[in-house]
């Protein structure tokens, strides 16, 4: 939890931290930080985490990378949760053909090989600056967010739908119908408040998925452009010269691992804290 707060603070104050260190994220230090063969130098007192192949400060780039990772993680989860909750409520409460159609769609998306598809889309749309679909889809951060959200909303959908199926049999739903409340009012006023804990728990478990997803795509060179530092991108770049510059992969790798771990722990903790059995 503390770690997550720290990440958020770092992300928000990235420029401040960078100016404290005195290096910009895309500033080239090829005089000082590249050796005679053009290979980067490792950690020293000025460049704590060393420099990358272009002579840029790894620490500063990682600090900026926090922004990208968190932004992608939070935005993608936000979209996925919004879509999943809304559709899950509708499918679970209305049932019938609406439910059947939505559930099938969710199943199909869940059964797709996500990475393969994502690579396909990003390659198709990321090949040129114009993007694809007549420029409607452009490469970049937003594309990563949307793809990630598109492939993860069925997760939330399934959980919400399942809980709603149970809740709608409860007598308080009949009670609401008996006073004349309509389906929208019942879904959002009666049922939604009872979904808060599962939504929070699963949302916190979806964030690390999105963070990882961004890292995968960036690793494959399909995510954000090179001038936007991202952990996945840095790991990818580092992997090409890992035998001479171990620090390029190690530090972003550790931070990625810690972040994913922290969010998973948060999710587990929230699940225990919000367990419906204990909040009765």
């Amino acid at each position: 939890m503390l770690f997550i707060i720290l990440l958020v603070v770092v992300a928000i104050f990235a420029p401040v931290l960078a100016s404290l260190i005195g290096h910009g994220p895309n500033e080239l230090f090829n005089r000082t930080m590249l050796d005679d063969f053009g290979l980067p130098l490792g950690p020293n007192s000025e460049f704590w985490f060393g420099a990358d192949a272009s002579g840029r400060d790894v620490l500063v780039r990682m600090i900026y990378g926090t922004r990208v990772s968190l932004a992608v993680g939070l935005l993608a989860t936000l979209f996925a949760v919004g879509l999943g909750v809304a559709l899950g409520l509708v499918a679970g409460y209305l049932g019938g053909i609406v439910d059947t159609v939505l559930s099938r769609i969710a199943e199909i998306i869940l059964s797709l090989p996500i990475l393969l598809f994502a690579i396909g889309i990003v390659t198709a749309c990321g090949a040129s600056k114009e993007g694809c679909a007549r420029g409607a889809i452009k490469p970049g951060l937003m594309l990563v967010v949307l793809i990630s959200a598109f492939f993860t909303w069925p997760w939330m959908f399934r959980i919400v739908r399942g809980v709603v199926l149970q809740l709608r049999e409860r007598e308080f739903v009949d009670a609401a119908r008996a006073i004349g409340a309509g389906p929208t009012s019942i879904m959002f006023r009666e049922i939604l408040p009872n979904l808060i804990s599962p939504i929070i728990v699963y949302a916190s478990l979806m964030i690390p998925q999105a963070v990882l997803f961004e890292a995968y795509l960036s690793f494959l060179g399909l995510g954000v452009p090179d001038t936007t530092p991202s952990w996945g991108r840095m790991i990818a770049d580092g992997s090409q010269i890992y035998d001479v510059a171990w620090w390029l992969m190690l530090f972003p790798g550790i931070i990625l691992l810690l972040t994913v771990l922290a969010f998973n722990l948060l999710g587990d903790g929230l699940r225990d804290a919000l367990d419906p059995k204990s909040d009765r």
Partner: peptide, 10 residues
């Protein structure tokens, strides 16, 4: 059922 007929979140 006086437990099930009142919404626990209201």
């Amino acid at each position: 059922d006086p437990y099930a007929s009142l919404n626990p979140r209201q």
